[in-house]
């Protein structure tokens, strides 16, 4: 399995999500946590970019971080999977290595 990229910054402020997207190979995964969850939502200026990336990447978002920020699962882009911390742990073990885009 390829790499799991974690992103913890809002895509509207920092380049972490861009960095992860542009360095993720086919079959890699992106997990959005903390302020990174704002990248997983429908109807934003970057939603299209995420929708396109779903053709080659798996994209996950951490549910507890979503809920904490007043967002619900139905606001998440179709095809992006919501996971909890147990799911975060599973992703870390399923993928070969983890790279944090801080």
């Amino acid at each position: 399995m390829a790499m799991l990229h974690t992103v913890n910054k809002s895509p509207f402020e920092k380049r972490s999500l861009d960095g992860a997207l542009s360095h993720a190979v086919n079959g890699a995964a992106i997990l959005m946590i903390e302020d990174g969850i704002y990248g997983a939502l429908k109807g934003t200026a970057i939603s299209g970019k995420i929708e396109k990336s779903l053709a080659t990447l798996k994209v996950y978002v951490l549910g507890p971080d979503l809920k904490a920020r007043g967002m619900t699962e139905d606001q998440v882009i179709d095809g992006v999977t919501v996971v909890d911390y147990a799911g975060f742990v599973d992703l870390v073990t399923e993928y070969d290595k983890v790279q944090a885009w801080l």
Binding site: H23, K97, Q99, A100
Partner: peptide
Amino acid sequence: SKDELTSLMEEQDVILTF
């Protein structure tokens, strides 16, 4: 290049980001 770096990253065992 970005693509060369991406391949190099995939070859690693441990990636530490600061």
